[in-house]
Amino acid sequence: MALPSNHEVTQLLRAWTSGDESALEKLTPLVYDELHSVARRCMAGERTGHTLQTTALVNEVYLRLVDCAKVNWQDRAHFFAVSAQLMRRILIDFARSRGYQKRGGGTIQISLEEAPLVCLEPDGDIVAIDRALKSLAAVDERKSKVVELRFFGGLSIEETADVLRVSVETVGRDWRLAKVWLLRELSQGT
Protein backbone atom coordinates (compact mmCIF):
# COMPACT_ATOMS: atom_id res chain seq x y z
CA MET A 1 0.00 0.00 0.00
CA ALA A 2 1.33 3.38 -0.97
CA LEU A 3 1.90 5.59 2.00
CA PRO A 4 -0.80 8.24 2.08
CA SER A 5 0.25 11.82 2.25
CA ASN A 6 0.06 13.63 5.57
CA HIS A 7 -2.68 15.66 4.12
CA GLU A 8 -4.76 12.56 3.52
CA VAL A 9 -4.36 11.43 7.14
CA THR A 10 -5.44 14.85 8.32
CA GLN A 11 -8.53 14.60 6.14
CA LEU A 12 -9.36 11.19 7.53
CA LEU A 13 -8.95 12.35 11.11
CA ARG A 14 -11.20 15.29 10.46
CA ALA A 15 -13.80 13.11 8.80
CA TRP A 16 -13.73 10.72 11.73
CA THR A 17 -14.21 13.48 14.34
CA SER A 18 -17.19 14.76 12.40
CA GLY A 19 -18.80 11.34 12.75
CA ASP A 20 -17.61 9.40 9.71
CA GLU A 21 -16.88 5.95 11.19
CA SER A 22 -15.61 4.62 7.86
CA ALA A 23 -12.71 7.04 8.09
CA LEU A 24 -11.48 5.06 11.10
CA GLU A 25 -11.31 1.89 9.03
CA LYS A 26 -8.93 3.64 6.67
CA LEU A 27 -6.92 5.21 9.48
CA THR A 28 -6.39 2.08 11.50
CA PRO A 29 -3.98 0.26 9.17
CA LEU A 30 -1.97 3.43 8.71
CA VAL A 31 -1.55 3.94 12.43
CA TYR A 32 -0.86 0.28 12.97
CA ASP A 33 1.86 0.17 10.33
CA GLU A 34 3.45 3.22 11.80
CA LEU A 35 3.25 1.79 15.28
CA HIS A 36 4.78 -1.39 14.02
CA SER A 37 7.73 0.31 12.43
CA VAL A 38 8.36 2.57 15.41
CA ALA A 39 8.15 -0.39 17.75
CA ARG A 40 10.59 -2.38 15.66
CA ARG A 41 12.99 0.49 15.65
CA CYS A 42 12.74 0.64 19.41
CA MET A 43 13.61 -3.01 19.64
CA ALA A 44 16.54 -2.54 17.32
CA GLY A 45 17.67 0.34 19.48
CA GLU A 46 17.40 -1.77 22.56
CA ARG A 47 19.57 -4.35 20.88
CA THR A 48 22.40 -1.95 20.25
CA GLY A 49 22.35 -0.80 23.82
CA HIS A 50 19.97 2.14 23.62
CA THR A 51 17.44 2.18 26.35
CA LEU A 52 13.93 2.04 25.14
CA GLN A 53 12.92 5.67 25.09
CA THR A 54 9.58 5.95 26.78
CA THR A 55 9.16 9.51 25.63
CA ALA A 56 6.54 10.25 23.12
CA LEU A 57 6.25 7.03 21.25
CA VAL A 58 2.71 8.12 20.57
CA ASN A 59 3.74 11.56 19.54
CA GLU A 60 6.27 10.09 17.19
CA VAL A 61 3.57 8.05 15.55
CA TYR A 62 1.35 11.08 15.18
CA LEU A 63 4.02 13.41 14.01
CA ARG A 64 4.85 10.99 11.26
CA LEU A 65 1.23 10.64 10.27
CA VAL A 66 -0.07 14.10 10.64
CA ASP A 67 1.22 17.32 9.26
CA CYS A 68 0.70 19.42 12.36
CA ALA A 69 1.18 22.72 10.61
CA LYS A 70 -1.73 22.01 8.30
CA VAL A 71 -4.08 20.81 10.97
CA ASN A 72 -6.85 23.29 11.08
CA TRP A 73 -8.24 22.39 14.44
CA GLN A 74 -9.76 24.88 16.74
CA ASP A 75 -6.76 24.39 18.94
CA ARG A 76 -3.97 22.05 19.84
CA ALA A 77 -5.95 20.74 22.77
CA HIS A 78 -8.63 19.42 20.52
CA PHE A 79 -6.05 17.68 18.44
CA PHE A 80 -4.62 15.87 21.44
CA ALA A 81 -8.02 14.91 22.67
CA VAL A 82 -8.92 13.48 19.31
CA SER A 83 -5.58 11.72 19.07
CA ALA A 84 -6.08 10.04 22.42
CA GLN A 85 -9.55 8.88 21.42
CA LEU A 86 -8.26 7.59 18.14
CA MET A 87 -5.44 5.77 19.81
CA ARG A 88 -7.77 4.24 22.32
CA ARG A 89 -9.99 2.90 19.57
CA ILE A 90 -7.16 1.60 17.50
CA LEU A 91 -5.33 0.00 20.40
CA ILE A 92 -8.43 -1.71 21.70
CA ASP A 93 -9.26 -3.01 18.25
CA PHE A 94 -5.72 -4.14 17.82
CA ALA A 95 -5.65 -5.85 21.19
CA ARG A 96 -8.89 -7.66 20.38
CA SER A 97 -7.93 -8.69 16.89
CA ARG A 98 -4.29 -9.73 16.93
CA GLY A 99 -3.19 -13.25 17.54
CA TYR A 100 -3.02 -13.25 21.29
CA GLN A 101 -5.81 -15.73 21.72
CA LYS A 102 -3.64 -18.02 23.73
CA ARG A 103 -3.43 -15.33 26.32
CA GLY A 104 -6.83 -15.23 27.89
CA GLY A 105 -9.69 -15.00 25.49
CA GLY A 106 -8.49 -12.61 22.87
CA THR A 107 -7.26 -9.90 25.13
CA ILE A 108 -3.76 -8.89 25.92
CA GLN A 109 -2.74 -9.55 29.42
CA ILE A 110 0.27 -7.57 30.26
CA SER A 111 2.22 -9.41 32.85
CA LEU A 112 5.50 -8.38 34.38
CA GLU A 113 7.24 -11.09 32.49
CA GLU A 114 5.91 -9.94 29.17
CA ALA A 115 6.79 -6.30 29.54
CA PRO A 116 9.36 -5.83 32.22
CA LEU A 117 9.20 -2.04 32.12
CA VAL A 118 5.58 -2.05 33.07
CA CYS A 119 3.83 -2.87 36.21
CA LEU A 120 0.21 -3.34 35.31
CA GLU A 121 -1.07 -4.89 38.46
CA PRO A 122 -1.98 -7.63 38.72
CA ASP A 123 -3.39 -8.91 35.47
CA GLY A 124 -4.43 -5.70 33.90
CA ASP A 125 -5.42 -6.03 30.34
CA ILE A 126 -6.13 -3.22 28.01
CA VAL A 127 -9.60 -4.32 27.04
CA ALA A 128 -10.65 -4.60 30.67
CA ILE A 129 -9.16 -1.22 31.37
CA ASP A 130 -11.18 0.21 28.51
CA ARG A 131 -14.32 -1.29 29.94
CA ALA A 132 -13.60 0.02 33.45
CA LEU A 133 -12.87 3.40 31.99
CA LYS A 134 -16.35 3.51 30.49
CA SER A 135 -17.80 2.87 33.94
CA LEU A 136 -15.64 5.63 35.37
CA ALA A 137 -16.95 8.02 32.71
CA ALA A 138 -20.44 7.42 34.09
CA VAL A 139 -19.31 8.47 37.56
CA ASP A 140 -16.88 11.22 36.65
CA GLU A 141 -16.47 12.19 33.04
CA ARG A 142 -13.41 14.35 33.55
CA LYS A 143 -11.47 11.66 35.36
CA SER A 144 -12.06 9.24 32.52
CA LYS A 145 -10.80 11.92 30.11
CA VAL A 146 -7.67 12.33 32.21
CA VAL A 147 -7.00 8.61 31.97
CA GLU A 148 -7.73 8.56 28.27
CA LEU A 149 -5.31 11.40 27.62
CA ARG A 150 -2.64 10.08 29.94
CA PHE A 151 -2.78 6.36 29.27
CA PHE A 152 -4.02 6.15 25.69
CA GLY A 153 -2.82 9.54 24.52
CA GLY A 154 0.54 9.39 26.24
CA LEU A 155 0.26 12.95 27.55
CA SER A 156 1.99 14.28 30.62
CA ILE A 157 0.10 15.71 33.59
CA GLU A 158 0.89 19.22 32.35
CA GLU A 159 -0.25 18.52 28.79
CA THR A 160 -3.40 16.93 30.12
CA ALA A 161 -4.09 20.00 32.23
CA ASP A 162 -3.61 22.10 29.13
CA VAL A 163 -6.04 20.07 27.06
CA LEU A 164 -8.72 19.97 29.76
CA ARG A 165 -8.17 23.60 30.73
CA VAL A 166 -7.84 22.77 34.41
CA SER A 167 -4.94 23.16 36.81
CA VAL A 168 -2.06 20.72 37.04
CA GLU A 169 -3.07 20.03 40.65
CA THR A 170 -6.56 19.07 39.58
CA VAL A 171 -5.21 16.63 36.99
CA GLY A 172 -2.92 15.21 39.64
CA ARG A 173 -5.81 14.69 42.02
CA ASP A 174 -8.01 13.23 39.28
CA TRP A 175 -5.26 10.89 38.14
CA ARG A 176 -4.62 9.64 41.66
CA LEU A 177 -8.25 8.89 42.36
CA ALA A 178 -8.97 7.51 38.88
CA LYS A 179 -6.18 4.98 39.17
CA VAL A 180 -7.36 3.55 42.47
CA TRP A 181 -10.94 3.62 41.27
CA LEU A 182 -10.02 1.67 38.15
CA LEU A 183 -7.91 -0.79 40.06
CA ARG A 184 -10.79 -1.45 42.43
CA GLU A 185 -13.12 -1.84 39.48
CA LEU A 186 -10.73 -4.28 37.81
CA SER A 187 -10.28 -6.33 40.93
CA GLN A 188 -14.05 -6.57 41.39
CA GLY A 189 -14.79 -7.14 37.73
CA THR A 190 -13.04 -10.49 37.56
Binding site: L35, H36, V38, A39, V58, L91, Y100, A115, L117, F151
Partner: peptide, 28 residues
Protein backbone atom coordinates in the same frame (compact mmCIF):
# COMPACT_ATOMS: atom_id res chain seq x y z
CA UNK B 1 -10.21 2.97 47.32
CA UNK B 2 -7.34 3.63 49.70
CA UNK B 3 -6.56 -0.07 49.75
CA UNK B 4 -5.59 0.16 46.09
CA UNK B 5 -3.23 3.05 46.66
CA UNK B 6 -0.03 1.10 47.05
CA UNK B 7 -0.63 -0.93 43.91
CA UNK B 8 -1.51 2.13 41.90
CA UNK B 9 1.91 3.75 41.90
CA UNK B 10 3.00 2.21 38.61
CA UNK B 11 -0.44 1.50 37.26
CA UNK B 12 -1.13 3.10 33.86
CA UNK B 13 2.08 5.10 34.06
CA UNK B 14 3.41 3.56 30.89
CA UNK B 15 1.37 4.66 27.89
CA UNK B 16 -0.70 1.91 26.37
CA UNK B 17 0.84 2.39 22.99
CA UNK B 18 4.23 1.58 24.31
CA UNK B 19 3.08 -1.63 25.92
CA UNK B 20 1.58 -2.62 22.63
CA UNK B 21 4.66 -1.52 20.77
CA UNK B 22 6.71 -3.91 22.81
CA UNK B 23 4.30 -6.73 22.18
CA UNK B 24 4.24 -6.01 18.49
CA UNK B 25 7.98 -6.00 18.27
CA UNK B 26 8.18 -9.25 20.21
CA UNK B 27 5.69 -10.83 17.97
CA UNK B 28 7.51 -9.65 14.89
Amino acid sequence: LLAQQKKSAEFLETPAVQLLGQLIAKQA
